[in-house]
Design a protein around this nucleic acid. Sequence first.
DNA 1: CCGTATCCATTCCGATACTG
DNA 2: CAGTATCGGAATGGATACGG
Lengths: 155, 155
Amino acid sequence: MAGRKSKRDEPCPVARGVDLVGERWALLIVRDAFDGVRRFGDFQRSLGVARNILADRLRLLVEDGILACQPASDGSAYQEYVLTAKGQDLFPLIVALRRWGELHLFAPGEAHSVLVRRDSGETLGARELALRTADGRELSAAELQVRKVPGRAPR
Amino acid sequence: MAGRKSKRDEPCPVARGVDLVGERWALLIVRDAFDGVRRFGDFQRSLGVARNILADRLRLLVEDGILACQPASDGSAYQEYVLTAKGQDLFPLIVALRRWGELHLFAPGEAHSVLVRRDSGETLGARELALRTADGRELSAAELQVRKVPGRAPR
DNA sequence: CCGTATCCATTCCGATACTG
DNA sequence: CAGTATCGGAATGGATACGG
């Protein structure tokens, strides 16, 4: 008579998204995957998560098409986990979370990891990581609004 | 000897962010707040969450400085919950999640809520909701990289 | 209408032992 | 090294009753 309620059928993309990646480990695993981590043990050491939990989360992410499970790349007889196209599309989400964290979750001057350009090494701070229209103007919450699906029950 | 481990001291802004808003209800409450929801009962009906859980999450979000608890705006003798500046800065995160959901979590042609411009009513689809540099070019994962904090134990 | 308090089931998580 | 199995404790979530 308890337990979580699935939002897989909600008409709001945010709600469905939370259902898949709104869990404490999912986004951190994806973050590590963007960082180049592929092996079970490397995820485990990087995250400090219990192995059973990690195995379960990896399985779920593969089920949801966010990670793919490949036989191996080096000689190892084991699996490696890489981002699918769907998983790679989570990049802006990770960046948005990073930006918010940089802005609000560190004391002034406190050190944190940063995004840099792979070629030039140039650091991208919060200013450069904004949500913009094609003409480079920042999108603000004030000018936007959600239009709900008409023919749906309110809940 | 179990329970969750806090990531409040991690040097990665993503990890710290997950610690605050990486929970099943937090982002949905924030989403509703962007939608103009302010009252306890309205959150409750919109989310379908148990009242004790909602009260707890609202309290946490206020503690974390994401929501502010104001005495009232109409005559009601009760509270209302509005986004602080820190909370409003979560907008790009919500949008990124929405974009990903729109792209990957709906069947072709399936209806979902959309973002529209408040003035013109123009719909903003996934194409318009990208992460861009100031000159309007999309930022891709391939060209970026995370530089970790040097003087930290790998954990 | 707005919350708080309590109860119970389920889920989550960490530690550890175990198998290949 | 890469997982699986199991256990106990903690957190989560839903229902409901209660008081302001």
